[in-house]
């Protein structure tokens, strides 16, 4: 296990991302930051504290997954919190790690069930490649080489005991959360 970013570096990455988003803040209409549970929402909260969007929320994508029949025991269903009108709102969707793109697809579908956003942009902390759907992030802090096929884990307080990004060179397990 190698540490790619410790607490200080991770905080700097979040700061850089926030600055980048701030440069092209949505010019028209209200905007919202929405995190994908259960790490993206923590990241979204941190960005929201810095960027003060009009709204903030989180989505749980369990019910929108396309692999429910394949992933073993039924996952924990958490609540989705979108308590603002989605119609006409610009949404910045936030997740920790982007891999296949399936989580993002599910999150987009979930958001669209709430209304018609004006646009949706995607921010991720780490892009580890391996896309199975045509999904690209608009903002990304760390890009890893897909060929390395490592397992990447973003750990964020308070979900985890510490703030860091770690990488496992062992490819045996492919249980990484995307």
């Amino acid at each position: 296990m190698n540490v790619l970013a410790d607490e200080t570096k991770l905080a700097a990455m979040v700061n850089d991302l926030a600055a980048e988003v701030k440069q092209d803040l949505f010019p028209d209409g209200p905007w919202a930051i929405v995190g994908i549970r259960s790490r993206g929402d923590v990241l979204a909260k941190r960005l929201a504290d810095k960027l003060k969007p009009d709204h903030a929320g989180s989505v749980d994508i369990t019910l929108y997954r396309d692999d429910l029949s394949e992933i073993g025991p039924q996952p924990v269903v958490r609540t989705t919190e979108i308590d603002f009108p989605v119609d006409g709102t610009n949404i910045l969707l936030v997740d920790d790690v982007l891999m296949t793109g399936r989580s993002v697809r599910a999150a987009i579908q979930s958001l669209i069930d709430f209304g018609r956003p004006r646009c949706i942009k995607l921010l991720v902390l780490c892009d580890r490649g391996g896309r199975e759907l045509p999904v690209q992030p608009d903002y990304v802090a760390l890009v890893l080489d897909e060929a390395d096929q490592q397992q990447v884990e973003v750990r964020l307080q308070p979900t985890d005991p510490e703030d860091c990004i770690v990488i496992f060179p062992d490819t045996a397990k492919s249980t990484s959360k995307e």
Binding site: L63, V77, R78, T79, F114
Partner: peptide, 13 residues
Amino acid sequence: TTARGFGEVSTRS
């Protein structure tokens, strides 16, 4: 706990 996750669905449009 799972039911709590579903409660919110009924409040959507």
